[in-house]
Design a protein around this nucleic acid. Sequence first.
DNA 1: TTGAAAGCGTTACCAA
DNA 2: TTGGTAACGCTTTCAA
Lengths: 347, 347
Amino acid sequence: MSRLEASSVNIREVARRAKVSRSTVSYALSGKRPVSEATRRRIQQVIDEMGYRPNAFARALARGETRTLGLVFPPAGSHYTDMQLNFMGGVTEAAAARDYDVLLSVADAGEEQSFQRLIGERRVDGAILMEIRLQDARVERMRETGFPFVTIGRIGEPDGTAWVDLDHGTLVRRCVQHLSDLGHRRVAFVNRPEALLRAGYESAHRARDGFERAVGELGLSGAAYPCDDDAMAGERCAEQILADHPGTTGIVTVNEASLGGLYRGLTNAGRRIPHDISVTGIAGARWAEAVTPALTAADVPAHEMGRIAIDLLLERIADAGATPRHRLLMPPIVLRASTGSAPRPLP
Amino acid sequence: MSRLEASSVNIREVARRAKVSRSTVSYALSGKRPVSEATRRRIQQVIDEMGYRPNAFARALARGETRTLGLVFPPAGSHYTDMQLNFMGGVTEAAAARDYDVLLSVADAGEEQSFQRLIGERRVDGAILMEIRLQDARVERMRETGFPFVTIGRIGEPDGTAWVDLDHGTLVRRCVQHLSDLGHRRVAFVNRPEALLRAGYESAHRARDGFERAVGELGLSGAAYPCDDDAMAGERCAEQILADHPGTTGIVTVNEASLGGLYRGLTNAGRRIPHDISVTGIAGARWAEAVTPALTAADVPAHEMGRIAIDLLLERIADAGATPRHRLLMPPIVLRASTGSAPRPLP
DNA sequence: TTGAAAGCGTTACCAA
DNA sequence: TTGGTAACGCTTTCAA
């Protein structure tokens, strides 16, 4: 016999001690049926004495709801970004505030196993999906089954799904605009890793599209670079940018993890920020402020996005028939110290 | 009726279609009793057709085990450190590899509610506790109830508990030693936030003790500073250090989130790293490499620690009677570019 | 206002 | 090799 049973106080025992039926104990707890004040009191006393708590699984089984939400994210080895991890924090705290637990699930795009554990075995009432791709098998799967879900990020054709996302396209556009306003004519774009791009990772694609559109509309010259999520890659990326186009005076980055390396690469090449080259982009505030000079950037409100995702999900669960809602966030670009007017062009 | 039930295929239906009893289906799945090849096949076919998966809660109820592990961490608003978050990643992936799910729970030191949800309602088979204090109410509580648990970090008197921890004391000691070897005579220590110290946060205390012991043994002058977990605090801390003791030429830090600010403060004060002042300490590799020059530091193997925690926990669950084991980790200090020999003393 | 009993979907023991 | 059935701990309908 397992310890769980051994140490378990159950409703039957409470009922016996309080000299009432099990149903009365249940009703006293849920309040779904009037219970006389006298017996309610007696029951409560026994419960306090014995430290009784209803078994969550038995309750889930009887009620058909689990009061647990799933958080699905892909395995990343040791390479979680700050952003991803702060989503997790936001989601979990918001869920706790609403009396839900969060069940973590690492599931790759095509991976059936984890999905089945979560949805197939009915462990959760709904799920939040992170790291969305333009074409996302997990999302399609959820849709088919009619299971309540919300995505952080949005698929290519998000109509009919519930999601919360940053408007990466517009945000990057604004960064380019900002550089353009400062007189920069040749700019570069530092994106997330190439592997993610190939996998169809939505934010990387939308950010790049935004960059290219903006460069075109504003009549600038620009080049986009994928970059791995670490400092060394950032350093190499800076070298590459300057090698390809020495006249580059502005950089937009959406890769916070490589930021320190990017700065280092630029500095090693003898470029001062922002005197010789301006840098801006989208990043967690912590990263933006860790570099010197601090990065002018749109701060990712990861924590808030986690909270919003939970709210949207609970809405879906409460009313599966309603039209799915979404939130497209566009945090302001906060001016710090990494951008300035373009240097006089070299002869 | 909830959607869950509506879309649910259950064992009874499978049994009916395969023309066997429910128990046979159950045994065919678990293999705990021989089943003739013919019926096993027939059952499997029905299962595949109908997409049957046993309901996790019903199974948990019947078996008395949940195949779910709890991960308890304190609420942090938006201020999770990289380290904490990477623990979460490591724990989750290791659990998934062993076919366990992870249930997240935000629980403050004294908070009963979350504890009760997790343990009282028997949602998990065991739990991992993070952010340990020297005196930790949660740990005591777990101990009393005999519930299987492992701590990441260790309490003041850890005997009899299972834990995995970094040897912060010795690690900081080695950092001081390293500085001493390079000829530094006056050093400073940048710790985690004061609030954490006051709360009895173990790693902050053990690190500080290690610093003071080392300074004493090596005959150096040293001062310790608490520092909040952000760049601005790091900057102010640098200023403070130089104001208090301008002759400081070496710094040991265990506060990765303030590292960028610390560098900035030093640089603003006209000190070049490592020419005028050396910096070293304990930090996640990502942070250590994000700053320029990259930090000579002991890299926190957060991911690995998460994995170890899971292994220790599964051990506890499998054999509650065994003596709890532990792992004290001491990653090497990897030499990067932030330390060098002490400058000639000023006149 | 309360009790009895039938589920919820599994597992595992007892028979056959 | 299989089937019947009593748990597991709770909720909720039906009766009183």
